[in-house]
């Protein structure tokens, strides 16, 4: 089939690629807080690290809805978003967030006040953790479910969401736990550091596969990848997501001597990469023209 490379057009009455403009930084931050908060809760839960779990729970329960409410056109009707559980990943994500808020909150209270029996506590913990996983991955499903934007329509999207969520969680556990529970557990510290290293490398491989797949999926996908790597968004994508989010994070983990300052720097670098990727995924989303030139 003959294909033609179009130009990016805005509101002009010209046929061409058009950018997605409905989702921007607000929803990117909402998903960032959701994923990182859930990741922090998830990793902290394995070590019963209360501070990490509380911070993660607050990120999902307070910061994420705050950013979402800023995005919604009719925030007071947000409760209606639970109606589409049968077909919408936004509804499923909302349900998971509600379950996480409820069961995660009860689990935290129980850790402190010991109000539940052991079996009940286990049930609450399992539900909270399952909801936590869904909160981490559902952005990926929301985006990959969309047939309109070749950049997003990838099976790797949920894995990218999950990996970045876990990476953010490990990063923040290292930071918050350094002078608390990790001081007494140097083996755990080493394990988490190795996990962080592995996750950064895995993120890099995933991102490369994702961009490679998008570039060969369609012309619009190639245009999106070109925007990220060569054109207008490259000045943001390469420094923030690749250089700071991956290369600098890797260098700091591997080479810098461990200190609070270094862990803060690692967290800042990794989280800049994470939030940068989310914003740029929305910015680089491009629609194909409705009709192919080959028709004429």
């Amino acid at each position: 089939m003959h294909s033609k490379i179009y130009e990016l057009v805005g509101d002009e009455f010209e046929l061409g690629y058009r950018r997605q403009e409905f989702w921007g930084w607000k929803i990117a931050f909402a998903f960032f807080f959701g994923e990182v908060g859930a990741g922090l809760f998830f990793i902290s839960a394995f070590y019963s690290f209360l501070l990490g779990m509380v911070v993660g729970w607050i990120m999902v329960t307070v910061f994420k809805p705050a950013a979402l409410f800023m995005h919604l056109g009719k925030p007071l009707r947000a409760w209606r978003a639970i109606m589409g559980l049968g077909h919408s990943w936004i509804s499923r994500g909302l349900l998971a967030s509600i379950l996480f808020t409820g069961f995660g909150g009860i689990y935290l209270l129980n850790l402190y006040f010991k109000i539940l029996s052991q079996p009940l506590s286990t049930v609450v913990f399992v539900v909270a953790m399952l909801a936590c996983i869904v909160v981490m991955i559902y952005l990926g499903f929301v985006l990959s479910y969309s047939p309109s934007i070749p950049l997003w329509e990838s099976g790797l999207m949920p894995i990218i969401s999950l990996t970045y969520g876990l990476l953010g969680g490990v990063t923040l556990v290292l930071l918050f736990g350094y002078q608390t529970f990790l001081t007494a557990n140097p083996e755990t510290f080493k394990l988490l550091k190795a996990l962080e290293l592995g996750l950064v490398i895995f993120c890099a491989v995933l991102l490369a596969s994702f961009l490679h797949g998008a570039a060969y999926a369609s012309d619009a996908g190639r245009k999106s990848v070109s925007c990220l790597l060569k054109e207008d968004l490259a000045k943001w994508f390469i420094p923030s997501v690749i250089l700071v989010g991956m290369v600098l994070t890797l260098l700091l983990i591997n080479m810098a001597p461990v200190s609070v300052a270094v862990l803060v720097a690692i967290a800042v670098a990794e989280l800049i990469g994470d939030v940068g990727l989310k914003i740029l995924l929305f910015k680089a989303a491009i629609y194909q023209p409705s009709l192919s030139h080959s028709r004429f």
């Binding site: 989702w23 995005h71 056109g73 009719k74 009707r77 947000a78 936004i90 969309s146």
Partner: peptide, 12 residues
């Protein structure tokens, strides 16, 4: 409608 924009992004 709550104005989430999901439909707008999903419309090819």
């Amino acid at each position: 409608c709550i104005g989430c924009g999901a439909c707008a992004t999903a419309c090819p």
